[in-house]
Simulated assay, not measured.
Amino acid sequence: MQRYAITFRVRPGTEDQVKDLLANYDPPAWETPDGTRLLGTSIFIKDGVVVRMMEIDGNLPSVMAHLAAQPSIRELERRLDEFLLEPRDLSTPQGAQAFFRGAMMEHVTTRVATFEARS
């Protein structure tokens, strides 16, 4: 499993509208045609900063292409555009790649608890 996160800013005073959009969109299909699986997503917001985290099993470029083609995600991203502090262009593969390159957070570490079996 791999974890990825992107971050972007929204205009001051729009946080409640953004929270509503991000909490209430239809989820995408969880598996891509090549078998990569989107295991889960989490979204955080504070002081106009949004962090979208996803866990996948497989290939990140495959998930990104898959999500870009999902109708519910396309609609969500279109509706989010009006609230963004910095404009973006997701209408072309080049624009989407540029946005994600700039928005992708650097993964520093993941720690997972391990437990010994009890008798």
Rank of each mutant, 00 (worst) to 15 (best):
K46S: 12
M64V: 09
I43P: 05
E86C: 11
T114N: 15
S42W: 13
E55I: 03
V50Y: 02
G48I: 01
S72L: 04
R79F: 02
M1K: 13
T41G: 11
T14G: 06
G13C: 08
S72R: 05
F8A: 09
L67K: 00
V63G: 00
E106S: 14
S91E: 09
A29D: 10
A68H: 06
D20T: 07
R79A: 03
G48E: 07
V49E: 08
T114H: 15
R9Q: 14
V50D: 05
A69P: 06
A113V: 11
K46N: 09
H107I: 12
K46R: 13
S119C: 08
L67D: 03
F44Q: 11
G102E: 15
A29M: 08
A98C: 11
Y25C: 00
R3W: 15
L21Y: 01
R37V: 04
D89K: 03
E77F: 09
Q17M: 11
L67R: 03
E55K: 03
I56Q: 00
V51R: 00
H66R: 02
D57C: 05
F115S: 12
R101N: 15
Q2Y: 05
A65F: 02
Q2A: 06
D26N: 07
L67V: 02
D26Q: 12
K19Q: 06
R118S: 13
M53R: 03
E31K: 10
Q97I: 14
R78G: 08
R101G: 12
E106R: 13
G95D: 05
L85W: 11
L22W: 00
I73C: 03
P28T: 06
L84F: 07
W30V: 14
R37G: 01
D26K: 09
Q94S: 12
G102V: 13
D57T: 02
R88A: 10
